[in-house]
Amino acid sequence: MAAGGDHGSPDSYRSPLASRYASPEMCFVFSDRYKFRTWRQLWLWLAEAEQTLGLPITDEQIQEMKSNLENIDFKMAAEEEKRLRHDVMAHVHTFGHCCPKAAGIIHLGATSCYVGDNTDLIILRNALDLLLPKLARVISRLADFAKERASLPTLGFTHFQPAQLTTVGKRCCLWIQDLCMDLQNLKRVRDDLRFRGVKGTTGTQASFLQLFEGDDHKVEQLDKMVTEKAGFKRAFIITGQTYTRKVDIEVLSVLASLGASVHKICTDIRLLANLKEMEEPFEKQQIGSSAMPYKRNPMRSERCCSLARHLMTLVMDPLQTASVQWFERTLDDSANRRICLAEAFLTADTILNTLQNISEGLVVYPKVIERRIRQELPFMATENIIMAMVKAGGSRQDCHEKIRVLSQQAASVVKQEGGDNDLIERIQVDAYFSPIHSQLDHLLDPSSFTGRASQQVQRFLEEEVYPLLKPYESVMKVKAELCL
């Protein structure tokens, strides 16, 4: 049975990233139509530049190519590739079939990587351009969430054990800070992308030097003109047959890092959902379990974690691919890159769409948070109580021993009897502590235990987050809708 299948058929496997999760716009960027249309555009740009620099290419040939950029006979191309065992030459023939007058000058002087690699770089750039505003929107939604809850005390956790208090907004800023680093890295790697350009079979530009009869300047002009037509500021000066596969490492490393950030955020949300302090959106008709109707599973956060793990592992592909590119190139890269580049971007696209949807509907339960604080705060307040007693004339050592005994009794009630923490009640009825009984409410005010959390939130948002989001103001209103 021949390899390949009808990918629109229910009898043929289709990647869930495309069929179930990723956005239509990201799927289109990695589609065959987008790819092969870009090949034709690159052939047109090459012909236009070659004509401008004096090669015998007519206006009629150029116009014929322009008129057929979208006229792609995919069936013919597939048949040609089956016959020739070469995808680029299959599309040269297919393009030439609908451009008979231009057929002889299509791909003039070029090698397969002229269309293959340059198209990949265009796709990487455009895919990054799709991700950047999506990530900015996630940051914006979380920034709104953090600002609104900047002063809401909550129990902090280290080692997932109760620690000092923080605020809900401050905790959210930990998430935002990681995503801001990801946004900066995505922008950097996007701006650092260079075009492969017009380089020939081993990167020496020998074929173009021959076409222009040894004119170095025209060869350099050709490279520059096509690079500018493709919208790049610069091209690699040095290439082998391909652009260095280190570029793929750079791009997928940034995406993998984004995956790590999203995994951490969504894990926190899942843990908070278990504590009943916070939940992701839950639709009115949504079913959490087929057997347990009360369940409210954090399905979206779980999906993000599941896909983020996949995204983090994909960076190993370009690392290994770059390491086995012998001399000017081997074909070890080809099949692998067809999979890992598309999957990385479709996965990143999915987790950003999902995280935006989550961040637009996060639900906080202040009463649950308050109750958990009441359970733990008495123990945390013991040092403040000791200091207040010393100020009232008591002995630190005597007070410490009193607190120690009462704390152990209260802990026994919590752990052995399943009761509430009654340390404060014990202190309130103990005559030894009568000098500070009137101060206990103040000493137990949760806001006095959150330090500068709310001020940190305000400063972080104003100095770091809002300036970073400013270039994306025009796209901030787009909502994230999930079908599944």
Rank of each mutant, 00 (worst) to 15 (best):
A3I: 14
G4T: 15
G4C: 15
H7Y: 13
S9N: 15
S9T: 13
P10W: 15
S15F: 14
Y21V: 00
Y21C: 00
S23M: 04
P24V: 10
M26V: 07
R33Y: 09
R33I: 08
Y34Q: 08
F36G: 13
R40K: 04
Q41C: 12
L42S: 03
W43A: 00
L44I: 11
L44T: 06
W45F: 14
A49Q: 00
E50P: 00
T52W: 07
T52R: 10
L53V: 14
I57L: 07
I57A: 04
T58H: 13
I62M: 11
Q63M: 11
K66Q: 11
S67Q: 09
N68L: 08
E70T: 14
E70M: 15
I72G: 03
K75L: 09
E79F: 11
E80L: 07
E81G: 00
R85G: 02
R85S: 03
R85E: 00
H86C: 03
V88I: 15
M89T: 01
H91I: 03
V92G: 09
T94C: 15
T94W: 09
F95S: 02
K101F: 07
A102C: 09
H107P: 00
L108E: 01
S112P: 00
C113S: 12
C113I: 05
Y114A: 00
V115H: 03
G116Y: 01
T119E: 07
L121E: 09
L121S: 08
I123G: 08
R125N: 06
A127G: 12
A127E: 09
D129N: 10
L130R: 07
L130S: 12
L132N: 13
L135A: 08
L135Y: 05
R137P: 11
I139V: 12
I139W: 03
L142P: 05
A143N: 10
E148V: 11
R149H: 08
T154E: 05
T154C: 08
G156K: 00
T158E: 01
P162G: 04
L165Q: 11
V168F: 05
V168I: 06
G169F: 01
K170S: 01
K170E: 01
C172S: 09
C173M: 04
C173S: 10
D178M: 01
L179W: 02
L179P: 04
M181R: 05
M181T: 11
Q184K: 10
K187N: 12
V198S: 06
K199H: 02
G200D: 00
G200C: 01
T201C: 01
T202V: 07
T202P: 00
G203I: 00
T204P: 04
S207M: 04
L209G: 08
Q210L: 04
L211G: 01
F212R: 03
D216W: 10
Q221E: 12
L222E: 00
L222I: 07
D223M: 06
M225P: 02
T227D: 04
K229G: 05
F236M: 09
F236N: 05
I237N: 10
I238Q: 05
G240S: 07
T242E: 06
T244W: 06
R245N: 01
K246V: 02
E250Y: 10
V254Q: 13
A260Q: 15
A260L: 01
V262E: 00
I265A: 11
R270P: 08
N274R: 04
N274G: 04
N274C: 12
K276Y: 06
M278R: 02
E279N: 01
E283M: 15
K284S: 08
Q286E: 03
G288D: 04
S289Y: 01
S289H: 02
M292K: 00
Y294K: 03
K295H: 00
N297K: 01
C304G: 13
C305Y: 02
L307I: 15
L307Q: 15
A308K: 03
L311I: 11
L311K: 01
T313Q: 09
M316K: 06
D317E: 05
D317I: 03
T321K: 03
A322N: 06
S323L: 02
Q325K: 02
Q325M: 12
Q325Y: 05
W326M: 15
L331W: 01
L331N: 08
S334M: 04
A335P: 06
R338I: 03
I339Y: 01
L341Q: 15
L346E: 08
D349I: 05
D349H: 06
L355G: 03
N357F: 07
G361P: 10
P366V: 01
Q375W: 02
P378L: 05
A381I: 08
E383P: 02
E383F: 05
I385G: 04
I386P: 02
V390F: 06
V390E: 07
A392G: 10
G394V: 11
S395E: 05
S395W: 04
R396H: 03
R396W: 02
Q397V: 05
Q397A: 06
D398T: 11
H400A: 01
I403Q: 02
V405T: 15
Q408L: 08
A411H: 07
A411M: 08
S412M: 14
V414M: 10
V414Q: 02
E417D: 10
E417V: 07
L423P: 07
E425W: 13
Q428M: 13
V429L: 15
D430I: 09
A431Q: 13
S434K: 11
P435L: 07
P435K: 09
P435M: 05
I436H: 04
H437A: 10
L440E: 09
L440R: 01
L443A: 02
L444W: 08
L444T: 07
D445C: 14
F449Y: 14
T450H: 05
T450P: 06
R452T: 14
A453Y: 09
A453G: 11
S454Q: 13
Q456F: 04
V457G: 06
Q458M: 11
R459D: 09
E462F: 11
E464K: 08
Y466P: 05
L468N: 13
L468C: 14
K470P: 05
P471Q: 15
E473H: 12
M476R: 15
M476W: 14
M476C: 15
K477W: 08
A480W: 15
L482I: 14
